[in-house]
Design a protein around this nucleic acid. Structure first.
Lengths: 215, 215
DNA sequence: GCGGTTGGTAGACAATGTCTACTCAATCGG
DNA sequence: CCGATTGAGTAGACATTGTCTACCAACCGC
């Protein structure tokens, strides 16, 4: 009954590939182990030989997605001069989100399997963040003195949040129904990036490293 | 068999209330019409008398969530002077998202029922956006000349995206696993808002209204 | 050769959304 | 006042899903 061709390489790989395909074409919530098995021409229980539960296969998909995402960012950044690094990262981020919307939603939009039970799932999320941290550390106006860890992290969170906001907003049903002109919608990402640029260009105070910032 | 008390007011209302309760305590994906029925002590088909499908009840929840959200923003804004309006809006936004995370995810995080088939669902989303648009229109540095619709919309999208990014990021599993100090995490929203403030304080060019901005 | 492991199958179970058939009461036209 | 209609709720069924358990058939080291 089982389609042999699919098992040339271990069924495990095939399951992951097929699951990813389903996620990319129909979204996470449509991912079903039975559908995976059906597509591979194996029994509905075959995938359970390789994954203890749906969450486990999901965790691997998330992990792979973060890996691909981080690699994409890394590629975009590599070789640039510090001045253009952040710009390139931002563009690459939005580009990735726009090109793989469902994969992006998989990483940032859905309740993920408990990270505590799937320790490797987030490894490459950390890597992606590290890329951003490093780029910010090299960003000319950002710092002068010591590494100032907290400052960089605050800045990194701001940049990441803002970019994520744009990427996420553009996929939301909400914006689509606001009746905005397509001109505005198309210009919005670039505009937001411009705003972030000016925000970073005018770094006013280094709040976090000052013990008592205002009192 | 049916618990009469629940039907004092029409079962319809009761279903919506119970469904909202489920969403708020377990998340959208855990919402099941059968569970609603069970909690209300009615047969599993009773809700279908009032809602043609799960999507229809979901659409009403989304609508109600947007209404509450918009009202919250409106309340926060009311009576402020233009200079503090945006600030108050931002704070209120983040406050709402932090206090009703699952409801926030309901509005912005999940694949919603097709808006085309549930026309009223997004009405209050538009209202919330309108509040922001209006506040930006009154924001001192933002404009000088004519209404400049596109400019305001671009700015509104930027502000909304950035704030949404912060709200959404703070709920993501991703940030939790970055190993950031709780000090940074706690300071992040305020920091991001500060950055947005400087971004808006230094409005450089009005890109959208210039016919050909760069070529 | 033989016992265990490895990878796969088949059947069952409960939960869910949804369809259809039914019951029962209220209401309303005549 | 009576019978038909309709509104509201019940009950049973079906397909789909995740997951459990039992089974089977190679294969591999001893």
């Amino acid at each position: 009954m089982a389609r042999r061709s699919a098992r040339t390489r271990s069924l495990r790989e095939a399951c992951l590939a097929e699951a990813l395909a389903i996620v990319e074409e129909k979204g996470v919530e449509m991912l079903s182990l039975r559908e995976v098995a059906r597509r591979l021409g194996v029994s509905h229980q075959a995938p359970y030989r390789h994954f203890p539960s749906r969450d486990h296969i999901l965790a691997e998909l998330v992990s792979a997605a973060f890996a691909a995402f981080a690699a994409h960012l890394d590629r975009a950044r590599a070789g640039r001069e510090p001045a253009q690094e952040l710009e390139a990262l931002g563009r690459a981020y939005l580009d990735y989100a726009a090109r793989h919307p469902l994969q992006y939603r998989l990483m940032f939009g859905t309740p993920l399997p408990d990270p505590a039970q799937h320790p490797d799932m987030m490894r490459n999320a950390r890597h992606a963040f590290a890329v951003l941290q490093a780029a910010l550390g090299r960003h000319p106006p950002a710092l002068g003195g010591p590494p100032g860890y907290d400052d960089i992290n605050l800045e990194a969170l701001f940049v990441w949040s803002a970019i994520h906001g744009v990427a996420s907003m553009m996929q939301t049903d909400a914006v689509a129904t606001l009746g905005l002109s397509s001109r505005v919608l198309a210009a919005s990402p670039a505009h937001s990036m411009a705003r972030m640029r000016t925000a970073l260009a005018h770094l006013p105070i280094r709040a976090a490293t000052r013990r008592r910032s205002r009192s």
